[in-house]
């Protein structure tokens, strides 16, 4: 099957601040990502990797350049259109989990479905299935404060995949986790990529974590330093 292009960036820049205080986080990124790829974006802090991820995930807007998602020029879309793109095609996993506090795991996972206007029964069913698929079938009623970090991140993954997104964005998904839970979460992501064909873009600064990906893009000072294919350790 010939690789189909999903994401194309050309000359993408992002500048924070204005005038003398302006800081250019991205200095003209050209990148192409195909459907089904598992890409790790690496770099030191301040290299612009998180900025790139946020723009790709439509959480932030570029200053200039072209960002095409499935040939749609995202930078030209209006706020609401970008919301609809997030709602229907994208999923997010954050370093800080970003779950709603005092809200059960099930309700957190149901949240994206609520905005899709699904019925209560359907929401429950899908959310339960997603939580089961991340290995938390018995934590439906638990609130984030009653879960460990790894479990919270798995709830967040369930929330991201419950809508069957085309692309999953993960910003340092293991940043707050210890090595064994890191392995659990990364295995889960790899599975999603393999079994469901979800394209995954992941930001990390750990080589170990990046080694789960097919392809590693290294950023430095707002430019792409290297773009290499991985010899995946679990690619057997």
């Amino acid at each position: 099957m010939p690789a189909k292009e999903l994401i194309r960036l050309s000359g993408l820049t992002k500048t924070y601040g204005q005038g003398d205080a302006a800081f250019q986080a991205l200095k003209g990124i050209d990148l192409s990502i195909n459907v089904g790829e598992f890409v790790a974006v690496m770099g030191h802090s301040g290299s612009g990797k998180s900025t790139l991820m946020n723009i790709l995930g439509c959480l932030d807007t570029p200053t200039s350049g072209v960002y095409a998602y499935e040939n749609i020029e995202v930078q030209k879309l209006e706020t609401n259109q970008r919301s609809m793109l997030r709602r229907h095609a994208l999923g997010f996993i954050f370093q800080g989990f970003n779950l709603l506090a005092r809200t059960s795991a099930l309700e957190n996972v149901e949240l994206p479905l609520l905005y899709r206007g699904l019925t209560r029964g359907k929401r429950h069913e899908m959310a339960e299935k997603a939580l089961r698929s991340v290995g938390l079938p018995d934590k439906l009623r638990n609130k984030p404060s009653e879960l460990s970090g790894g479990q919270q991140q798995r709830v967040a993954i369930a929330r991201a995949i419950v809508t069957n997104p085309i692309t999953l964005f993960a910003d340092e998904p293991t940043g707050n986790l210890d090595s064994s839970t890191t392995h659990e979460v990364m295995t889960l992501l790899t599975q999603l990529n393999r079994e469901k064909g979800i394209t995954i873009l992941m930001v990390t600064h750990e080589d170990d974590v990046a080694s789960y990906a097919d392809r590693v893009v290294c950023l430095s000072d707002g430019n792409i330093l290297s773009d290499t294919l991985n010899n995946r350790k679990n690619n057997k």
């Binding site: 995930g57 959480l59 706020t79 609401n80 919301s83 609809m84 997030r86 709602r87 229907h88 994208l90 997010f92 970003n98 779950l99 709603l100 506090a101 949240l111 994206p112 905005y115 929330r159 809508t163």
Partner: peptide
């Protein structure tokens, strides 16, 4: 603060601003 983060979460999972 808490509510702004809540709004951020809702927007990031695809809620419209007007919702």
């Amino acid at each position: 603060t808490e509510r702004t983060r809540e709004i951020g979460i809702r927007l990031s999972i695809g809620a419209l601003a007007r919702e």
